[in-house]
Simulated scan of single mutants.
Amino acid sequence: MAGRAANRRALICAATCAALALSPALAVADDGSDLSAQQLAQQAKKNLLAAESVHLKLTDRSAGSAASRTQPTSMDLALDRDGNCVGILRMGGKGGSVELIKRGKEVWMKPDTAFWKSQVPGPQGDAVAELFKDRYIHGSTKDVMLKGLADTCDLSSFQKQVDSGTSAEGKSLKKGAETTRDGTKVIPLTTTKAGKKAVLYVTSKSPHRLVRATQKGRGTDTVLTFTDYDKPVPSATPSPSRTVDIGKLQQELQNV
């Protein structure tokens, strides 16, 4: 599980980093209709980097992703810069799903039966799934088995990836006509590179925020949405009666 964290972060960033690779910040007005594509994108990038928290949803329909039981085809995560996170990851194929809660360095994960069966081969998978049914595995970011999932909840790391994507690609952005996405008035910004078309949907009104990003072409088909900028991540954690220490899981897996 730990080795897949980088892939998850890369998947999230892929839908935004290329098009948010921008030139230096420009002086801008508040009305989105008066701004260039580059100015709108720069404002969206600035506000994304400044966000203390955000709720992101990722859907990956890329070729081959649906068949992968080890990579998520969708994520629904509320996360902040303090390392707190709540959400769910859904794997491709019959890989199942994992509910995830992180508060600081503490981590809880609750895989469903399909996830356990995909991770633990043979009848042992059934046994582990039954043993930990409807319960959270509890540990910390120091536990190798939990660290990979926990790293997915690192908003600061994601922001660093976006911030490091600086090049001249932002100059190729094309501004479209105002439209509506999920009830919000937005302006689409489009760019194409290496056969892949990326579209950023930035709010028309100030503060100009990225609310949706898509990328399609050459085996890629991802949709990423951003909502609840700066809204606190839910703080509830599972009760002790609903949790099992990570050590118990490690013991069981050693017997598999």
Rank of each mutant, 00 (worst) to 15 (best):
A50P: 03
A150W: 02
S241V: 14
V162W: 08
R4Y: 15
E106F: 13
R9N: 04
M75L: 13
E130D: 12
L11S: 07
V162K: 10
S97A: 15
M1G: 04
T203D: 08
V128E: 13
Q161R: 05
G83F: 05
A18T: 13
V86T: 10
V186Y: 10
G95R: 00
K45N: 11
Q42F: 11
T113Q: 15
V54F: 05
N7Q: 11
A63V: 08
G125V: 07
G104S: 00
L58F: 04
D34M: 10
L173G: 01
K142E: 07
L131I: 11
D76N: 08
I12C: 09
F158V: 10
A41G: 01
T243H: 06
R181M: 01
D163H: 12
Q251R: 15
K110I: 08
K133M: 12
F158I: 12
K94T: 05
A2F: 10
V256H: 07
H138S: 03
G92M: 01
F158K: 06
L35Q: 01
G95Q: 00
I88Q: 09
L40N: 04
T141G: 09
T225A: 02
A129L: 00
V244P: 08
R81P: 14
A25F: 01
R209Q: 11
K248D: 08
H55K: 07
